[in-house]
Nucleic acid binder design. Sequence first.
DNA 1: GGTATAGGACTTACGCTGTAAGGGAAACGA
DNA 2: TCGTTTCCCTTACAGCGTAAGTCCTATACC
Lengths: 216, 216
Amino acid sequence: MPPAARTPLTRDRVLRAAVRLADKHGLEALSMRHLAATLKVEAMSLYHHVASKDELLDGMVDLVIGEIELPSATGDWRRAIRGRATSAHTVMLRHPWAPLLLVSRINVGSNMMRYIDATLGCLRNAGFTWLQADRGWHAIDSHIYGFTLHMLSSPIKPEEYPSAAAQYLPMLPAKTYPNMYALTKLVAEGKHDGKEDFAFGLELILSGLAQLRKKR
Amino acid sequence: MPPAARTPLTRDRVLRAAVRLADKHGLEALSMRHLAATLKVEAMSLYHHVASKDELLDGMVDLVIGEIELPSATGDWRRAIRGRATSAHTVMLRHPWAPLLLVSRINVGSNMMRYIDATLGCLRNAGFTWLQADRGWHAIDSHIYGFTLHMLSSPIKPEEYPSAAAQYLPMLPAKTYPNMYALTKLVAEGKHDGKEDFAFGLELILSGLAQLRKKR
DNA sequence: GGTATAGGACTTACGCTGTAAGGGAAACGA
DNA sequence: TCGTTTCCCTTACAGCGTAAGTCCTATACC
């Protein structure tokens, strides 16, 4: 009796398994041996489908980028860019390991290229110059990645901010850090939720861009 | 004859050597064995001064944060915040490994605390609400880290953009990525330097904040 | 001065990592 | 039928962080 026929390994199956593993157990759990085990295969077999671990990571990132909703080239540019940014933010929260890889390596996968091209096109159609579109795109993406990374690095969940603030308040030297103390106190008392607000910074950038367009 | 008396190892000396090593050869070259070697000592000896490699990294980050110029609490808030942001950006370029550590771990070193406290104080003195100061600070730092990371991840130096653009242009499928093609062409022709502009996004955020203050 | 104590550096060893090198069986094309 | 190719395998290596234990030396005290 032959062993149960297994679906053959493909590059795509490897990449998807890697994303699943990183989603569930974090990037640090993503070793070639671990990944191979989830596919019921030995580590070295993976190298028939990806050249190296770095290439694996590149593929994972591009897969995730592909989940982001592209901005439509026509219609309200502000709405389109906002939608794209929000979608990117949401996707990153679904794959918390992704933003770190995104900012720490060059990514030139086809999904990434399409993503940038669509954004540039949207801003150009809105009437921005190439210079403005280029810099605008950078500013928006800096916010997306910077903000999301900052948010993900905190071990405390937003729901727990008030209780955490109450817990840490007594340890915070009020003399040395008067402003942090005051702010933490407000959070502990429930007068400020302390939640990070992705939209806040995004809207600052969007209205800044809108003003540029008027002045042109 | 006794061996040449060596200056004794201290936590501070270890941290500074680590920063120097990372500056010169990158984070990936910073192993405990390597670091120990630069101090003419064995790897395990370092553990008398730092509890773990993670703690070492925390210490390095806080050392770097200490190099950032604090915003003055009085005077023009916009100028103060701009100065702080620019200083942070400059410091990160001096220590290119730092922003990655900054966004991928919680940092509660004393320099970091002082840095946040001063920023909050500056914005409060400028007349912002606690909510605005909190979110404003987040928006600005998201830009600083997001932008700097993005910039550092590119292997091509700004001076080389035109020649690199000219080199890659023929390989870029104009049909699939029309906007990237057009933009790359402009760079290749010297009509757009393609340089990232840290100040561009920063000013968008600053003027957005300024408008908030007016409306209050 | 002699002795106890503590601290700092050492050696050894373990389990983990990515991956280079090559073997062996099964499937496929001529 | 016989290569040839395709996949997956085993083995091995150098490097990693660090737990555990040893040893030397500089200081503190009687």
